[in-house]
């Protein structure tokens, strides 16, 4: 690939990203009132999106081979339990991540 072709490739990635990020804001502009269904989606989508993102992060876990997703399951369990108990965002994340790193380094 020449330098120009590389720059075009990168520019197309930028353009595609800008389109997906700006489109909703362009379609439903500041001036017109947002349709009720879209406002409804705006209210209920966050809950659905975080569920989607958790699965997205775990998509490479192999349940049938390797460590069978045990480190992920245990570390997530620790994160959730600690968060329900202490309700401290940073603490839950730090302990969950350390649990995970310890397990993949020393246990699995």
């Amino acid at each position: 690939m020449t330098l120009t072709q590389q720059l075009v490739t990168i520019a197309l990635c930028v353009l595609a990203t800008l389109i997906t990020r700006f489109l909703p804001f362009l379609v439903f502009s500041n001036k017109r009132p947002t349709p009720a269904f879209v406002r409804y989606l705006g209210d209920v989508l966050p809950g659905a999106i975080f569920g989607m993102l958790i699965v997205y992060c775990l998509k490479d876990v192999q349940l049938l081979s390797g460590s069978h997703g045990l480190p992920e399951a245990l570390a997530l369990g620790a994160t959730v339990l600690l968060h329900l108990w202490k309700k401290n965002l940073l603490l839950s994340m730090a302990v969950g991540t350390l649990c995970y790193m310890t397990m993949i380094h020393f246990v699995f």
């Binding site: 839950s92 991540t97 993949i104």
Partner: peptide, 15 residues
Amino acid sequence: AGLDFVMTAMFTVIF
């Protein structure tokens, strides 16, 4: 290795 789990943990806590 494994430090990227912080993202999974973050999305979980935010969930």
